[in-house]
């Protein structure tokens, strides 16, 4: 009887410690757990080759005023070194023909060029420009570039598990490792089942929440990638930007040449 009592006591005392130990060993530490979650996001997103989409960007001011911009976004996956993206503007008409080429490197600083049709000139943009607004929207170039997950660019920390609109999510904090970021940290909700990013909270350098990105209306494409048709960035000021993606095309045979400085000039 005594031995049973001792055994019971031992179990009762040891149970929380055992639980704590198993949680830690099974899920590793929060840092590697966070990194693993993003490694899975990156892995499931890779292999699309190239993609093109037409994108409508709606700027909604707190005052109620709205403005619309229309562009095409083409992206090429580069083996072992991130991606190359060309954003070409179609509307408003005074920026029609303007195009921005970005090399998103997996670890090194990104490189960016803009083509100005009025002067037929391609100009390299200083890295600091990434923190400025993208076409007057709530997005910055940095926000757009980091939608292309480059694992080494952040430090990660798993925070918790929680549901977001009914979807079980893993919530991970990521801290930029690259210079001149506008953010101290970002908190990211990753859909547990599909390994896709559903929401990002951006905290400025003073660690104050600046804005929140929500990705919705996901569709699965034949190349097995999930893509969000809508991305909504809402700033704490009340201004918002809605990106609507349409007509996704994958693997249309785009090559490095299509994403060169020479190709920017039209």
């Amino acid at each position: 009887m005594k031995s049973i009592r001792v055994a019971l006591l031992t179990v009762l005392v040891a149970w929380p410690a055992f639980l704590a130990a198993t949680t830690l060993t099974a899920g590793d530490d929060p840092v590697s757990q966070g990194r693993e979650i993003f490694a899975e996001v990156a892995a499931r997103n890779s292999g699309y080759g190239d993609q093109q989409a037409s994108v409508t960007m709606q700027l909604r001011r707190k005052s109620g005023a709205t403005t619309t911009r229309v562009m095409n976004i083409a992206t090429l996956e580069v083996a072992n070194d991130g991606a190359r993206t060309i954003v070409s503007f179609n509307n408003p008409l005074d920026v029609k023909g303007t195009a921005v080429l970005t090399y998103t490197h997996s670890a090194a600083d990104d490189e960016q060029w803009i083509y100005l049709p009025a002067f037929k000139r391609v100009k390299q943009i200083a890295d600091a420009n990434k923190t400025t607004s993208f076409m007057g929207s709530e997005f910055t170039y940095e926000d757009l570039n980091s939608l292309n997950i480059q694992l080494p660019k952040f430090d990660y920390r798993f925070l918790r598990t929680e549901e977001l609109d009914g979807a079980p999510c893993q919530v991970v904090e990521r801290v930029p490792r690259y210079a001149r970021s506008a953010y101290k940290r970002q908190v990211v909700w990753v859909d547990r089942e599909r390994s896709i990013v559903l929401k990002i909270e951006y905290y400025d350098t003073k660690d104050v929440l600046a804005k929140t990105l929500s990705l919705t209306k996901f569709r699965k494409y034949p190349s097995s990638q999930w893509r969000a048709d809508e991305m909504s960035m809402v700033s704490v000021s009340g201004d918002a930007t809605l990106l609507t993606w349409r007509d996704f095309k994958f693997k249309s045979g785009l090559a490095l040449n299509d994403f060169s400085v020479s190709a920017l000039k039209r």
């Binding site: 600091a128 420009n129 400025t132 607004s133 007057g136």
Partner: peptide, 12 residues
């Protein structure tokens, strides 16, 4: 030189 950090409101 890009001084955007010095002015607010996303201006460049």
């Amino acid at each position: 030189y890009n001084l955007s950090g010095l002015i607010k409101g996303g201006r460049t």
